[in-house]
Simulated scan of single mutants.
Amino acid sequence: MFVDSGEKLIEECTKRKISIADYTIEEEISKSQTNYEYVFSRMKKNLEVMKSAAEYGTENKVKSMSGLIGGDGFKLNNYSKKEDTITGSIMVKAMARAIACSEVNASMGKIVAAPTAGSCGILPAVILTVGEKFSKSDDELTKALFTASGIGMLIAKNATLSGAEGGCQAECGSAAAMGAGAVVEMLGGTPEMALDAASIVIKNVLGLVCDPVAGLVEVPCSKRNVSGAVNAITTADMVMAGVGSIIPFDDSVSAMYRVGKQLPCELRETALGGLAVTKKGQELKNKIMK
């Protein structure tokens, strides 16, 4: 059975001198009663879907079913090719992939809900972009997805991944935490460093509400995928530089869960608060619902 805390995960990985990815693979093999090749190939299929969604959304002006969002992944991808971007081509490319996957989701395209459909752009953006920069193979990217899965398992066990239960901190926040931890381990960081990265990410978005305009996972969700990807990558850089998290991963996760429970229902995916009830939010809702 998968361990129930980050502390225990670090202890287990340290004792056995394995990575979070290795531990997660072993647990999946045991749970599914299959073998390494089967488990790894299934995760690799997820990677292919992520690649496809990111590529399609950056190379095409994808429009959502409602018409609320679309084409921003394409715009950012073109912008990333300029030499004078503010944050650099790597970061802008990650932003493009994050919003692109979100747009593909909103257009009824195929994505990987990692951990949710509303936050589907963050993990692909982070894994693919960092992997591309460091010339990582598909097998290495797939292992990173196992690291992300292990971190997601711990969040699911001790808190929630649902915006309806815990706000957007539980969706985009968890996805960014998974991405940050995954790239840290992919770049040679220890399990403890990976969980430090996840912890810092969660602290950065603690209290983030879920307020979808017109009840659709489009506005402001698509742009929160972008900020989640940026959060993950910048945090990973901090941790790789030797910056740790003063608050342990387990404490950050428990805090996120408590904060989520304290949020009023209006701020948990009901579209009854936040941006959803602004003047523009209501105008868009009325237009769409006609």
Rank of each mutant, 00 (worst) to 15 (best):
271 A>E: 08
24 T>C: 05
82 K>G: 08
15 K>Q: 11
244 G>W: 06
75 K>S: 13
173 G>C: 06
93 K>E: 14
245 S>C: 09
202 I>H: 03
108 M>H: 08
158 N>I: 15
198 A>L: 03
174 S>E: 00
112 V>D: 02
121 G>D: 07
233 I>C: 07
67 G>L: 13
69 I>G: 02
284 L>H: 03
129 T>Y: 06
44 K>A: 12
73 G>W: 09
100 A>S: 13
54 A>E: 07
112 V>E: 09
24 T>L: 04
129 T>S: 12
238 M>G: 02
225 N>R: 09
204 N>C: 08
9 L>A: 11
281 G>F: 09
97 R>K: 14
104 V>D: 04
266 E>R: 10
217 V>F: 03
54 A>D: 04
14 T>K: 11
126 V>S: 05
188 G>S: 05
266 E>G: 09
255 A>G: 04
146 F>E: 01
116 T>Y: 00
17 K>I: 03
175 A>H: 00
196 D>Q: 09
290 K>I: 12
96 A>T: 08
70 G>K: 15
6 G>N: 05
138 D>W: 00
195 L>S: 00
279 K>M: 14
89 S>T: 14
31 K>L: 12
60 N>D: 08
151 I>G: 02
198 A>H: 02
194 A>V: 11
182 A>N: 04
139 D>A: 14
146 F>I: 05
1 M>W: 00
16 R>V: 13
96 A>E: 14
259 V>G: 01
247 I>D: 10
106 A>Y: 00
164 A>V: 07
271 A>W: 02
13 C>Y: 03
44 K>H: 10
212 P>N: 11
263 L>D: 03
161 L>G: 03
225 N>M: 15
168 C>Q: 02
218 E>P: 05
168 C>P: 05
243 V>K: 10
40 F>I: 09
204 N>T: 10
258 R>A: 07
39 V>M: 00
240 M>E: 01
56 Y>C: 12
62 V>G: 12
43 M>P: 02
284 L>G: 01
131 G>I: 13
241 A>N: 11
198 A>G: 07
253 V>N: 04
114 A>P: 01
17 K>N: 12
287 K>G: 05
62 V>T: 11
82 K>E: 13
275 L>M: 06
115 P>M: 04
275 L>I: 10
33 Q>L: 14
5 S>G: 05
51 K>R: 13
88 G>K: 01
49 V>S: 06
38 Y>D: 12
288 I>M: 01
40 F>Y: 10
26 E>K: 06
158 N>E: 07
12 E>S: 06
246 I>S: 06
94 A>S: 13
114 A>C: 06
278 T>A: 03
249 F>Q: 03
222 S>V: 15
233 I>M: 15
211 D>G: 12
149 S>T: 10
128 L>F: 03
199 S>E: 06
77 N>M: 15
50 M>E: 08
51 K>Q: 13
42 R>P: 00
